[in-house]
């Protein structure tokens, strides 16, 4: 047996079973989503069932799912904009202009990313009430940047450090001011980094759960992550096929973009900016 073949077999032997275990829940969600509500508990119908779109139809016609998707997209869009406005300049300045102080500040900002929402939700819920934002999507718009901005600054710091400083020097020799060099030379070639931030900020918003259930109380104002476990589960009858569809719809596209941007994401987590 050739060495290459043996190596491939080793990989398949480990990767295939583990992948099946990790991905099986999604396969079973897909199967369940096409079952009829009256067959899901039938032990004789575990694998042989009459496929139907009833669960999917129910989700879009009888629940507020589309509203939740819309709310999530709205909050996500605004939070992405706020995050970019705050994090792009800060990430650049920390990487390039602030020297050693910038390095320590960058680390400090990274550490704030470790402070979890579960530690801040109680005081924040009081602040949100004082501001009169309870049960409003604006409460989420205000609070979400508190975790998207630190993560994005960290990601962008690493990204800006990977752009050769000679590019800016050349622009300045040609008569650009620092600000012009930033706007005309650095930002255009930073687009991949900015796109990474857009995608991960958005996915963090879709993922967020605790603020969404603490601040929002009415079904019409929920996001997907809060609406599905709260309002689809608390009903009298669990419509499991629709719930499975509701989980799959945001999960698959998110996994696709994660896969596409994986390398930048890894650099963001593993200290691309520590150098």
């Amino acid at each position: 047996m050739s060495r290459h073949l043996r190596s491939s077999l080793f990989s398949y032997g480990i990767v295939v079973p583990l992948t099946i275990v990790l991905a099986f829940p999604f396969f079973w969600m897909a199967v369940t989503s096409f079952k009829r509500q009256d067959q899901i508990f039938d032990p004789k119908r575990t694998w042989s069932f009459d496929p139907t779109f009833d669960g999917w139809k129910f989700l879009f016609q009888q629940t507020k799912y589309l509203t939740w998707i819309g709310n999530t997209a709205l909050v996500g869009g605004i939070v992405v904009a706020i995050t970019l406005v705050l994090a792009v300049p800060a990430g650049y300045a920390l990487a390039r202009l602030a020297g050693r102080v910038g390095q320590s500040m960058g680390v400090a900002i990274f550490l704030t990313y470790l402070v979890p929402p579960t530690l801040l939700f109680l005081p924040l819920s009081r602040v949100i009430t004082k501001l009169g934002l309870q049960d409003s999507l604006w409460s989420l718009v205000v609070v979400y940047p508190s975790f998207t901005v630190p993560f994005s600054i960290w990601l962008l710091m690493g990204f800006f450090k990977s752009i050769p400083v000679e590019l800016e020097d050349a622009a300045r020799i040609d008569g650009c001011s620092r600000l012009q060099a930033l706007l005309r030379v650095v930002f255009p070639i930073s687009l991949p980094g900015v796109l990474t931030v857009v995608i991960f900020t958005f996915s963090l918003v879709v993922n967020e759960y605790i603020y969404a259930i603490t601040f929002i109380s009415s079904s019409a104002h929920r996001t997907v992550s809060a609406g599905v476990p709260t309002d689809l589960i608390r009903g009298d009858l669990f419509n499991w096929p629709s719930i499975m569809a509701a989980i799959l719809i945001p999960s698959i596209p998110l996994a696709l973009v994660y896969n596409a941007f994986l390398n930048r994401f890894i650099a963001g987590f593993t200290g691309g900016a520590f150098r």
Binding site: L18, T19, I247, A255
Partner: peptide
Amino acid sequence: FLVLLPWAAPVALTTTGFLW
């Protein structure tokens, strides 16, 4: 892609799936 699914999918949603 398949390996990444459990991490990329929103945790509140996949946990709801496990309830089933």
